[in-house]
Nucleic acid binder design. Structure first.
Lengths: 94, 94, 94, 94
DNA sequence: TGCATATTACACACCC
DNA sequence: GGGTGTGTAATATGCA
């Protein structure tokens, strides 16, 4: 089994445990902070959809457009990667 | 059926359609911008998990802790809401 | 690509297709049957809320209580899972 | 505001409150019981999809079929209702 | 009828 | 690379 920071046997004092615990806490707080920001952005996005709806654009349709544009982007990027792969295969990279 | 911005009858020229299209485009671009930021945050979160793993903290456990803390928060929020419902039910709201 | 039951090349007759189709039909009917039962239960639940309302209990409050009890259960389950993760992380699983 | 079972002022003893509480508890338990059954059915349905997948039928496609059949049923039912409405309008009901 | 929420379907990421 | 689990998007339901 893999060694982890939970396996400390530092029994003289628990300084190591404390340090380990503090690092863990720090990671958790960083994650939670980022999650909050992410959630806030999700709310912003909902707000934009709501605003668009308020001016007569149906969210459902906008979602479809956004989704299609995303698919196009990905498709183009994949084609580009394939092209580069070919180029490199025939020694014409860069 | 409800009137929408896509149903313009502006036949002299399509100025209204253009304006409408520009507004739609604007909404879409705002959404896409926010989506990108959200995606970037998701990547940041993954990075933090990776970094934590690199110092010996198992992501699986961290995820559980984060999830548990979130559950605690939600439970507390629900309790608060229930309390407020009771208060309002017996006419003691506000 | 993965072979599927819809790709039969049985051209002598379509016996295989028929069998395949019958199996598909059977799956679909089983699903539809279960969906119906599920829907019936959802109606039963609505009925209970209605009955409760009829004797003076606000559905909103009951929903909140049910939701809160569920949150408690989930929190407890998460705590248990976290504990098990710890145990396994320090090699004390089982 | 509506009168509710939470507004008892039965202070001689709290018999009424107890009875009221028991009725509430009963409602909640009935709901939870039904919710559990509903959840069990949802699991059964997932199982059928999994079994179908195991024999080569893609869940996504089966879902589509089920959904289409449901839409057809609803459409037919609505047409039937419309027809009955017409019939009744011209005095040919039953 | 519009809004908020709860459920459900989908897609992505991780692990084996 | 296939299955599982998690997280997100969409839909359906209930309330104001």
């Amino acid at each position: 089994m893999a060694k982890t920071n939970l396996q400390t046997q530092d029994n003289d004092d628990n300084a190591a445990t404390t340090v380990s615990g503090q690092r863990l806490k720090s990671f958790i707080e960083r994650i939670e902070r980022l999650e909050e920001e992410k959630k806030a952005l999700a709310e912003d996005i909902r707000d934009v959809y709501a605003e668009a709806k308020g001016t007569g654009f149906e969210p459902k349709i906008i979602r479809k457009i956004v989704s299609l544009r995303k698919a196009n982007l990905e498709k183009r990027r994949e084609e580009q990667e394939l092209l580069e792969l070919y180029m490199s295969a025939i020694g014409m990279a860069e």
